[in-house]
Design a protein around this nucleic acid. Sequence first.
DNA 1: CAAATTTTCTGGCAATACCACTTGTATTTC
DNA 2: GAAATACAAGTGGTATTGCCAGAAAATTTG
Lengths: 235, 235
Amino acid sequence: MLFKKLSAPSLKELFVSELEGMILSGKLEIGAKLPPERELAESMQVSRAVINSGIAEMEKKGFLVVKPRIGTFVADYRRYGTVETLVSIMNYNGGMLRDSEVRSILEVRIHFMSLAATLAIDNASDEEIASLKPYADALASCTDSEEAAALIFQFSHELSFISGNSLLPLFFISFQTLVCRLWVRYADKYGIAPLAKSAADIYQYVALRDAEGAVACITKGTQESIDGTRTIYSQ
Amino acid sequence: MLFKKLSAPSLKELFVSELEGMILSGKLEIGAKLPPERELAESMQVSRAVINSGIAEMEKKGFLVVKPRIGTFVADYRRYGTVETLVSIMNYNGGMLRDSEVRSILEVRIHFMSLAATLAIDNASDEEIASLKPYADALASCTDSEEAAALIFQFSHELSFISGNSLLPLFFISFQTLVCRLWVRYADKYGIAPLAKSAADIYQYVALRDAEGAVACITKGTQESIDGTRTIYSQ
DNA sequence: CAAATTTTCTGGCAATACCACTTGTATTTC
DNA sequence: GAAATACAAGTGGTATTGCCAGAAAATTTG
């Protein structure tokens, strides 16, 4: 697409990104007390509702701790954050993460995918496994990076769904934003072909009910991504 | 504690639990279109903001999909929900989950804990590993179920933190509410002793840098929980 | 009957106002 | 003078109102 859809950020979004920037840049130290909502509202020339809902959002993300009627404090987000926190960190760094963080993500992904594949091989019906094929096929003829990332996600998510473990798909959903960003970057750098090949291979092994092969394939494919992203994300 | 802290639900919370109940009971089918916000507000005799923010919250939980200027629809939460969704399902069922869901959670937990322990054994310093001990010790002399559940969580979380994988602690945090509930129920039924023993054993294996032993211990301990919870949660 | 226009309906967003609780301080009481 | 009490100020929590922009339906126009 030549002309992307553009949209103006809301006041709340502006406030959140401003404050996140101050925290992530270290301008606001962990444990620091924020000024009262009314004061922030007056300084920034917005209503208290904007500040209040922005703070609530950042508390959910793990950046702040609100103690009612006492004050709002900067939290230790690297320890007590959630996956959403990592997305914010990524946005702040212009869509990048530290090398160690990318490795962490892919390390976890290897285990998740392996578990999903193994369980699917044990529990899923042939029809359920066949439902994966359209995603792998679409990936082979896909030309847009974002679309490719979305397809990989759908493939993985469907795999986790047919695994029979009802918690796995929920985790894959939590993962979604984060992993899709990584795939887009990978596809932009190395093309979609290796991603398509990896998905097709995994599908083949699962369809053949070869758990060991599937795990080996997942490990190998993701390991290559790690090696690839190392050059993309190195700082 | 004899007298627990009590708190009245807000209008928004009332609305959310009401709507969640209608969805989880099947009264509102997946894909169904909700009445417009203004209509809901009038029926329920609250302002539109209550409805609007309640709907926004439920969209984050995966129960609803909002299409701006078109309408709000019930989502396929078992497929597209998050971990929070599972907590809501649990609350709706009076703090219980289906047997298959409890098994799914513990199955995933085995893998998470094993990964955290293995990585910690490889990467953590002796001092970092020693930081786990206070939690295991406190657990041994703990008498309150909720406190015990919190301690197990802190132990697990700390273990994931020293693993060196920066994504793991974030996942453990996402898990927190869900898993703590399960531990409380387990402790109420079987006592705190087996939980304390399990934590102490895991600590020993990690301190000895015995990855195989740790994994075996985690698998065994969690497997017992699965067998135990089967009787608690069977429907 | 089709295309263009207007109206209606929908969710998004922000400003305002009031509430409940905590804390620190002044006052009272003994 | 010390302790208990009452009060006032400050803080976040929450609900109400009103206006906005875009999608869909109804209407007009050719």
